[in-house]
Design a protein around this nucleic acid. Sequence first.
DNA 1: GCCGTTTTCGGCCCGACTGTTTTCAGTCG
Length: 576
Amino acid sequence: MTNYEAAWLFLELADRVEVAGDNPFKAVAYRKAARLLEGLGEPFAEAWAAGRLRDRPGIGEAIHAKIGELVQTGTISALERLRREIPPGVMDMLTLPGVGPRHARNFWKVLGLEDLTALQEAAEQGRLRTVKGLGPKLELAVLRAIAQRDAAPGRQLLGLALPLARDLRESLARQPAVERVEIAGSIRRRAELVGDVDLVVASEAPEEVSDFFVRMPSFREVTAQGPTRVAVVHQGGLPVDLRLVEPAVFAAAWLHLTGSKEHNVRLRQRAKERGWQLNDYGLTGSGFSLPEEEDLYRALGLPFIPPELREDRGEIEAAEKGELPALVEESDLRGDLHVHSEWSDGTASLRELREAAARLGYEYLAVCDHSRSLAVARGLDAERLRAQRREIEALNAEGHPVYLLAGVEVDILGDGRLDLEDEVLAEMDLVVASLHSGFRQEPERLLARAAAALRHPHVDILAHPTGRLLGHRPPYALDVPALIELAVETGTILEVNATPDRLDLCDLHVRRFVSAGGLVAVNTDAHSTEHLVFREYGVATARRGWCRARQVLNTRSLPDLLAFLAREKGRRFSSA
DNA sequence: GCCGTTTTCGGCCCGACTGTTTTCAGTCG
């Protein structure tokens, strides 16, 4: 069982405890344990067996015993009991917006409703209002929620939500009543998937702003409207939350709305320890003027914490000790080490790609078209690769500021061999290896294939290591911690693929890899010149993985990069 | 269920909005 699966069981336990009506703080404790398991840097069973979980904050006697039960029996008896007690349809009710554990429990215990169909019928017949505290509005909300359940988009890619948020921000910024407007929430933290758009506006005339906002044509409905908060739904289905505050308290509101919830909880505890209260309006009782987030953090004895780190994954402890990493920035990138041209399935010529790279201020670009077995992508064989190299050499002879590297994205075949002979790979400036087939193989076989590539002396980079496509395809059943260990051992670069639906490696794996001494490459895998700007999402993922510039290969200058590749090749051959 | 330079018991972050209510519970973030 993976840490992620264990964490998921504790989250389920928390939900069920709430519906069962047990002490709600139990649920809080289980969720905290789930977070810890998810972010644990080693398999939870090993950590438990070695007694390393006992002293972790939030793990007491009872939860420690439950984890032990999970290790030994594969399940948790308290969870099994609640699964028998609460019908599955009742848990489904929690997915309806506006229905939390109390409503679900009332529907079940008071009205005897055990699934969404029964709930829908009862709502249609007006029977929900027979429960004290429930009325006709809730019946309507329930019916609408059930009707829209399948039409709802769920969480959306950062790559879609961030541009939308920026558009909305620009529109608001042009309003005279708006003094300042910023993006907050999970988009500001650059989460890979986001559930809504959060915006904060500073204004002396909030009603003017909210009137303008609800009339914007890009929204399909207004779901809440009060003096300080407006909630709407964008035409694409993404909810948008607008918070309106006085300019003087903007920073506190921005901090609060940026979250994460868990990060905020820690900051508020910290304020409380100092005899103050931190809320959306500032630090009550502190007497400080706090115009910016930096000032709030400073008042709490901390340096500014970048939004990408605000997940309560150790950033507060690191900040306390002055050990926050100086995170890699977009401007640190000197090139892109994985792009495709019209030679395979890309749309741009080498010259066009080079111009686009120049516009980003790059020093180099590695052209890594597909290899021959990927026929759907018009993969290149040795002969076409050599022809492409001749074109690249001719272009490089022009003295252009962007140097092109002749690379290849070589397929790792089903049996672990590479799709091109060693003598061909030896000619390349850069070899990127990747899995494009056999996604559903057994974990052992997948790992063996990946391992063969990592150990191959000609392979420099493993591309999109887990193969996931956000919202479409789960990661391969690959033992990523083992893969990471081997990549560190062999000195192979792992890619942080910046394509918005890949972001692969993901943030947690990046953190694990770089903290173990690994180097990543933030690559766009661009198939057109427009895709080069996807680097923003790759850099965001690296930052969420606590990545410094020196841990990213393509922050190096061209001479340093070439020297590194040559040195690595020499080392690999002497150890092979 | 966890936790302790206020505490081994009594707290646990805090506020906005909605709906159902004449003062608050539930949901959400």
